[in-house]
Amino acid sequence: MCMNHNSVAITVTSGKGGVGKTTTVASVGLGLAQLGYKVCLVDTDIGLRKLDLMLGLENRIVYDIVDVIEGVSKLRQSLVRHKEYPDLALLPAAQTRYKEEVSPSQIKQVVDELRQEFDYILIDSPAGIEGGFRNAIAPADRAILVVNPEIPSVRDSDRVIGLLESANLTKIDLVVNRVQPGMVRDGDMLSVERVQSHLAINLLGVVPEDKRIIRSSNTGEPVILDSKSLAGKAFSNIARRLTGEEVPFLDLESPTLINRIKRLFHIA
């Protein structure tokens, strides 16, 4: 098989559900496409697909990854191209099948075929550490761990790091999502530094909590396209860092006059 040797397969995972894996895949994938790379997003959450909704491509799906594996369709037929960014493609998950119906080696085979065309293959992992997770990590060259700054999320992520390492996947980067600087400042949320210190992996990005993300998932336009969104800017920076560019982290601290006065009187 003729492989694109520069092709990189990255699994985005977390352990715990609802931390922002799919949001990260959609926005970082789009960010890489904006930078001129050929990108394929693979949804491995068979039975509970979401990535199509995040990208606004749900009405254009004809075939899915299970169809490819079962030989019902060819890989090219199953890819859904983004209208605005044709270098961005989605390989959707099946919505009416089960994760157990495919194996890690079958997913790996599909991703190996995608390597011929795409520079980056981002694999959206389902929550949990069962079969779906094993499917998602099988083809990966590296992993991105999405974590929220709260104990349940960090504990699950710590477990996932152990599982990734035992699968010989040692290039693992951290994205801390849904950070609320005000809560960190008030001592009500774990800081990014503490989360990174506990997990002891490379920090790839810090994404602030942003109401615009809810809007974007409802409209099917990834938040990276929202020029007013700080989270969108953070995802854009993550995409650039993935390509090797050195990008400083966003300053999420924007002290208001009220906050300054509160701190002066030790009431915040």
Binding site: D186, G187, D188, M189, L190, R194
Partner: peptide, 12 residues
């Protein structure tokens, strides 16, 4: 004492 300090100890 900030809650996050306690949370940090608990997390450790």
């Amino acid at each position: 004492e900030p809650t996050a300090t306690k949370a940090d100890d608990r997390l450790a």
